[in-house]
Design a protein around this nucleic acid. Sequence first.
DNA 1: GCATGTGAATGGATTCACAGCT
DNA 2: AGCTGTGAATCCATTCACATGC
Lengths: 230, 230
Amino acid sequence: MRLACCCSSQVDMSRVPNDRDGISELTTGRLSVYLRCLTFLESQGQKTVSSHEMAERFHLNSAQIRKDLACFGEFGTRGVGYDVTRLKKSLVETLGIDRTRNILVVGAGNLGMALADYTGFNSNGFHIVALIDNDPGKVGRTSRAGIPVLSWDRMSEVIRKNHVDIGIIAVPPDGAQTVCDALADAGVQAILNFAPVQVKLRSGLKVKSVDLRINLESLSFHLKNAEDGG
Amino acid sequence: MRLACCCSSQVDMSRVPNDRDGISELTTGRLSVYLRCLTFLESQGQKTVSSHEMAERFHLNSAQIRKDLACFGEFGTRGVGYDVTRLKKSLVETLGIDRTRNILVVGAGNLGMALADYTGFNSNGFHIVALIDNDPGKVGRTSRAGIPVLSWDRMSEVIRKNHVDIGIIAVPPDGAQTVCDALADAGVQAILNFAPVQVKLRSGLKVKSVDLRINLESLSFHLKNAEDGG
DNA sequence: GCATGTGAATGGATTCACAGCT
DNA sequence: AGCTGTGAATCCATTCACATGC
C-alpha cells in the first residue's frame, strides 16, 4: 500500500502563513499525510518508526518530517525514533480531530450529495449532520446514506442544535457568498468552499476553497506541453 | 462578483517544477485564475485591463501577474495594459483548452457520478465521455445528466474510440493503483486521482491527486487553534 | 551507534523598483 | 503620464549537516 504523499498533491496558491502560530498550511497539510502514514503503520503492527524510515516508505524527506513535528513538541526519542501510536495520537490532537467536528453541507445537488456520503467526511473526527437546500423538491429527502435534506430557513437552527463547526458550500457560484454569510452569521467559523468564486473574508472565519476545474486545466497544460515537446 | 483567487485556495505540497519548461504548478494554477478573471471582465464588456487593475479587483499581486504572463510571451502594451479578449485567448491556448479534452471517469459511485455531471468538467474545453464501473448492477445505467456507465472491460476500447485524454480515478483507495495502471496502459497520459493514495509515477504520465479530507483536517486545525488561542 | 532536533545553507517564489516603451 | 517586462532584493520553504542525547 502506498499513501498519498507530498508529491503530486493539490495546488496551493496560498503561501499565507496560518493565522495564529507561524505554522504554514504546507506544514499542516503534511501533518495530515503523516497521520495517514502512521495509521497505516499502526495497522501493520509497527511500534516504532524513524523519520528516515517514514521518508523512505512514503517518499518524503526525513528532515522535513522532523522539522514539521518539532513545531508541536518533542515527540521522538533520540537513537530510537517515534512511537507510532503515541505520535499518531499527538497528531490527532494537534489537528483537533480528537473530538468530532460536525459538518453541514449546503447545496444538495450532485456534488453536495456525494460529499455528504463521502467516507472521508464521515469518519475519524468528522460527521456530516445534514444537507441544506432551498429547492422544496429536495427538502425532506435523504442522501443514499440517509443524511437528511433540510430547508434553507432551518439552517441556523440546525447549526446551533447540532454544534456545527464546519460548513461546506456546494451551491452554484452565484449563491456562494450568500451561503457563506449565512453560515458565518450562524456562528460557523470554518468553511470548505467548492464554488469557484472567492468569498469575502471576515475576521475569525477561515475559508478553504477547492477548485476542481483548476486541476483539469493544469493537466491540460501538461498534455499540451507533452504534445508540443514531442 | 468575486472570483476564486490565490488566497485560500487548495493545498499544494508539490513544489516540484513542471516537467518541461521551468513553469511551476503554482504559476499554471494562477493562469487558470487569470483566465476566470478575464472571462468575467469580458462578460462585463471590458476591453482592456492593466495588471494593476486585475490585482486590485481580484486580490492578486500585479508584479506576479506580469511575471506569470511573461513566461509565455509579451501580451501587454506598455502604457495601456492587456487586451482582455486577446489575453484570454492566449491563456486558453497556453492551457491547451482551445481544443476539447475528453475525460473518462472510473468509478460510478457517488463521487464519480457527481464529477461526471459537474459543470466545470463539461464545459469550455472539457467533456466527460463515460463512466466505468466493475459493478454489473451499475453498468448500463446513466448519470442524471445522461453519461453512460460502461463495464470495466470496455475501458481501453472507449479510451481509443473517444480519444480520451484524461482519466479520473474515483474508486476506493484499494483499487486506485489498478485503475491508474489500466488507464496508463490504454494510453492516457493525465490522471486526476481522488483516491487518498499515492499512485506510482511512470514517465510520460502526469497524475494530480486531490485529497478532500486534508482540507477538512486543515480547517479542524484552524478551529482548534482559534479555540485554544481565545 | 543511532536518530532526533535544529542552526546554517540552499533553492524557489514573491515582491520591489525601475528601465524602457507607448 | 502610464504600464509592461524584468533584474535585484526579499521572503519563505526545503534540505543539509551536525551537536545533542538515548
